[in-house]
Design a protein around this nucleic acid. Structure first.
Lengths: 225, 225
DNA sequence: CAACGCTTAAAACGGCCGTTCGAAACTCCG
DNA sequence: CGGAGTTTCGAACGGCCGTTTTAAGCGTTG
């Protein structure tokens, strides 16, 4: 047995090529023939090394989820109120979003992997849903709890709703960066991670700070309508 | 030649079945055999009536875009400031979002069609991108202009960015309503259009009202960072 | 060298895809 | 009724899919 860092060239090349192509063209949109040709390996290599096409997808998740969750949680734990730092809410939002946008640095490939998850969430792939639930439920729940603590005026349901809108803004940016570029005639570039972070964090923070819709002062009432 | 309202049963059944199935499982995710079987028509009917699978997709757009754009623009023109009404910004946002969420009433099917567009935007289908640009550019530009007038403190780029986040929140809700339901353990139901509208409009409005990031008072500076 | 694992290679498998075709069925008008 | 035009039907086309099989290459070890 060899160390994970010394995986054969074929295996690593398949993992990285597949992640990129799946993110760009979807899981069902990429055939093993296209994939293996792009990676420069034999067609049978996927089934030999990963058992099946689905096994390859699961392997991508196994290799990416731990680093991304660790970075998100480390950033979350580093959040705190102090003079000279951004408000706590902005810190929490950035802790969740920044690793998902990263294309360089220690969490390089975060953008590609985020785009892959966004694409998979559309394809109604049963395996993908299981993988996302398995690898991201815990971290997302931690962030929702942190947001709820930072926003005591909101009901539990409202925190979930606004976190959902956060996911939407993030995922849509990864899925369809071309639409805003087209609409704005090139003025906005959603492929620029720094610009996205700069624009998205204040927008989302202001949304999270909107007043609660629950008229009743008792926090037990969850009806929003 | 017969009137458009008297389309044969086969043709209308194909249009509606295809819209629903494409929205749920993606364009490439639905084969003509599944589709025609679900619609109860012969396999060859798609190619006979629409020429090809892509022709069927284009026909769906032709039938849906005009009503949705007309309703959005009608609602936009009805916006105005008056005592007793919601603020202008909330009216504009609702004018854009409500027709896209509708599953009943005069713009019934808006939710399905919105979901279809969201799914197509992921599949990198060239035809889909052309259809969306052809049918939605004008309306979207109108709404961006209305938002810019209602938010004179923002730069042009900032209005586009925030409109982009609006699209993300809307599309993600249609694409992946199950994620928030799963995360919140059933507390939030993203399939409930009324609840979505109630939660989304105040959140987005607050985000749009966030201060401009452009430090300079001169509106010509567009740098956000 | 010989024998053994591990990896790569080429070819083929059955199956489903979008599309096409010719005949059958139906509709409508003289 | 009888024939023309339109729609439906079953069957088949070539092509690509994920997977499997079989054999060849290759480095290590006895």
């Amino acid at each position: 047995m060899i160390l994970a860092e010394e995986l054969s060239d074929t295996k690593t090349r398949l993992l990285r090529t597949a992640e990129r192509m799946f993110a760009e063209q979807g899981y069902t949109g990429v055939s093993l023939r296209q994939l293996t040709a792009a990676a420069g390996v034999n067609l049978a290599a996927v089934n030999y090394h990963f058992g099946s096409k689905e096994g390859l997808l699961a392997a991508i998740f196994e290799s990416r989820c731990r680093p991304m969750n660790e970075e998100r949680l480390a950033r979350l734990e580093a959040c705190g109120e102090a003079p000279g730092r951004p408000p706590l809410l902005e810190q929490i939002i950035a802790a969740f979003i920044a690793p998902a946008l990263a294309s360089t640095g220690e969490s390089a490939g975060g953008a590609t992997f985020t785009r892959l998850r966004a694409v998979l969430s559309v394809e109604h792939n049963e395996l993908a849903r299981e993988l996302i639930a398995k690898h991201f439920d815990a971290t997302s729940t931690r962030f929702v709890a942190a947001l709820a603590r930072a926003l005591p005026h909101l009901s539990r349901a409202e925190v979930f709703w606004r976190f959902h809108f956060l996911l939407g803004s993030l995922y849509y940016t990864m899925i369809n960066p071309g639409r805003i570029e087209h609409l704005s005639d090139g003025l906005c570039d959603a492929g620029d991670a720094d610009a996205v972070l700069t624009q998205m964090v204040p927008f989302l923070a202001a949304g999270f700070r909107a007043p609660s819709l629950d008229a009743k002062p008792t926090p037990r009432n969850k009806a929003g309508r």
